[in-house]
Amino acid sequence: MTQELPHSTPHPLRADARDNRDRLLEAARAVFSQEGLTVPTREIARRAGVGPATLYRHFPTKEALVTAAFADQLRACQDIVDRASADPDPWRGLCQVIENICELHARDRGFTEAFLSAYPRAITVVTGRDRILATIADLARRAKLTGHLRPDFEPDDLILMLLANKGIQLTSPTTQLAASRRFAALLIQAITNCPHKTPLPPAVHLTGTRGRPAG
């Protein structure tokens, strides 16, 4: 009689390995957020205080690191869209999506690049993005039926919105968020099909403000 082998279960990481992984993710989020995804993995390892071999043991590819680094942001983005989709007023839900996603992406340049498929082999990010965009497209379709959303709005305009929002790169995080909020308000007014317009957030005075070049 053949003895059945017990099911194998993944072994939990040792405390020092968990600490190294956490430091790598913290460094990756900080670097990607400030400088985008082009930063070499060796630089991330250096900032985390570990060697490249340690990084590759936890994250064999850069795509794996990107996916793990932005897992929380992707879940937050999905939560924003799910809450908006459940709103009985689809126009209000769409406006909330635009406002909240612009703010989320303004806080993290690296997440925007990952979301826009700078690393298409980061399957979790790409799959999550496609689901998010499909939900927003359905929300936009329903918002058109209410008469609030202009009929020529297309789901691809959302990608255009994120690309434009990504271009807001200022040295002050507070100014960055303020500029992104005003941009979102201007965008909402541009796509509305109703004559009534709500007041804009305060203008952001950018003259003399040193920004970083986009890209």
Rank of each mutant, 00 (worst) to 15 (best):
A17D: 15
M1D: 08
V204E: 10
D156T: 12
C77L: 14
E99R: 11
E43R: 13
P52L: 11
Y119S: 10
V31C: 07
G147I: 05
L206T: 11
T171S: 10
T192V: 05
L13G: 03
L145S: 11
A53E: 14
I123R: 15
H205C: 08
A179W: 04
P88S: 07
A53C: 01
R42V: 13
P202C: 06
L206V: 10
A15N: 09
S180T: 09
G167C: 12
F32H: 01
N20F: 01
D152A: 11
G93V: 02
R210P: 02
F32R: 01
P120V: 07
V81S: 07
T146R: 01
T209D: 09
I168L: 13
N20P: 00
A45N: 03
T207R: 14
L170Y: 01
A203F: 05
P202A: 11
P151C: 05
L177D: 07
V126Y: 01
G215L: 14
T38D: 14
A134Q: 10
V204C: 13
K144P: 01
G208I: 11
L94S: 02
F153T: 11
T67G: 12
P151I: 07
H11D: 08
E26N: 10
S33T: 08
T112Q: 09
C95P: 00
A28F: 05
V204F: 07
A178P: 00
F70L: 02
A214Y: 08
P202T: 03
H58N: 07
L25A: 06
G93R: 04
A143L: 08
C77H: 15
A184R: 01
L139M: 04
V66E: 00
A137C: 04
G208H: 08
F59I: 01
I101P: 00
D108A: 05
M161A: 10
I98D: 07
A140R: 02
R121V: 06
K197F: 04
K144D: 05
E113V: 04
V97I: 12
D89M: 03
L187P: 00
L206R: 04
A185V: 02
Q96G: 12
